[in-house]
């Protein structure tokens, strides 16, 4: 079933027509994360097994006795999606080698939110990546613990107001810079690291398909706009994602065997972060000075990334 009108006319052959993540799930209206999950399933196809952490995507998709998943899917706990995925991968590998399951290539995927990846699931992820399992790990980063009610995580950006780091008379909200998870994964020397955003669906699908084609661990960091948690209009999720990319707040890039490249979707000149901050309630309290400080950090981080794409010549060969 095509849920996009004239889908075949606009996107022939570019995107898998199968809906492996079905409609009828319970995500909030305007959720960009669930769109990203749907795109991920399209990109990876039916020969995929997914291990999900506890979180929004688990809760909205698997209310017993219903399920939105048309690919094999497992949820165990919050902090262990990567460890469960590594076990699934090891189990399938052994069974395939011994001829006990049919001889087809199946990609195993671990998925979690920013809390399940950067905070509580950090150790399990680092272990799974270091061990070199043939798996993709996707972090759906909506920049706070949205499922439990918008509490801060180490993925929450500086200055954002959350329910555990609220803006107040003597606080700007989040007082720390966002943890740079893609760089931490690059430091694991895994074959492939990429950032994606469902506002750029073709870039998204291309990177997921590349990750699928690579033997060994890959890490995908997905920027997932959360209108509910960001206090932004629910119809604006796609445009908010575009603004995050176009302001350099969330640059789209990939690192293949240590070689950095910027996505073709990145603009030559970045827009000011004010354009991205303005529609979001979580940044509404920030002063011009606060925004200038964050702008400086965004510029610096982006410049570092540009330099890696331009001047860093030595990869993992």
């Amino acid at each position: 079933m095509n849920i996009v009108e004239n889908f075949d006319l606009f996107a022939p052959r570019l995107i898998n027509h199968q809906e492996l993540f079905s409609p009828g799930h319970r995500a909030c209206s305007g959720c960009a994360e669930v769109l990203a999950v749907r795109l991920m399933c399209k990109a990876l196809g039916e020969n995929t097994v997914i291990a999900s952490a506890t979180g929004c995507m688990e809760i909205v998709s698997s209310m017993f006795p219903t399920t939105a998943w048309r690919v094999p899917w497992i949820h165990v706990a919050f902090e262990n999606a990567a460890a469960v995925a590594s076990g699934v991968e090891a189990g399938l590998k052994a069974l395939r080698r011994k001829g006990r399951i049919d001889d087809r290539y199946v990609k195993v995927v671990g998925m979690a939110g920013d809390g399940g990846t950067m905070d509580i699931g950090f150790q399990a992820l680092s272990g799974a990546m270091e061990r070199g399992h043939d798996m993709i790990y996707v972090c759906f980063d909506n920049e706070a613990y949205m499922n439990t009610g918008i509490q801060r995580s180490s993925g929450t950006p500086m200055g954002a107001s959350t329910t555990t780091a609220p803006a107040g008379k003597v606080s700007i909200g989040q007082k720390t810079w966002k943890k740079n998870m893609p760089e931490i994964m690059v430091a694991h020397n895994i074959p492939y690291v990429a950032t994606v955003c469902p506002s750029f669906p073709l870039d998204f699908v291309r990177k997921l398909q590349k990750a699928r084609s690579i033997e060994g661990p890959s890490y995908i960091h997905c920027f997932s706009v959360c209108p509910t948690g960001w206090r932004s209009p629910s119809h604006s999720a796609i445009s908010m994602g575009r603004l995050a990319v176009e302001t350099g707040v969330f640059p789209l890039f990939e690192v293949e065997n240590g070689h950095y490249s910027m996505s073709p979707d990145m603009p030559r000149k970045l827009r000011p972060i004010r354009d991205y901050f303005k529609p979001q309630g979580r940044f509404r309290h920030l002063t011009d000075e606060d925004i200038d400080l964050i702008q400086h950090k965004v510029d610096t981080e982006f410049q570092k990334l540009v330099e890696k794409t331009k001047y860093l010549k030595t990869g993992n060969e």
């Binding site: 165990v76 902090e79 076990g87 699934v88 189990g91 052994a94 006990r100 399951i101 270091e130 061990r131």
Partner: peptide
């Protein structure tokens, strides 16, 4: 003939055997 997975904690040990068992191993 087995996959021997040297995990980074007992939490991940149990998580990984849960994953493998779910896969039919």
């Amino acid at each position: 003939d087995a996959e021997f997975v040297t995990v980074e904690s007992e939490h991940s040990a149990m998580s990984a055997v849960i994953g493998a068992s779910s896969a039919g191993a």
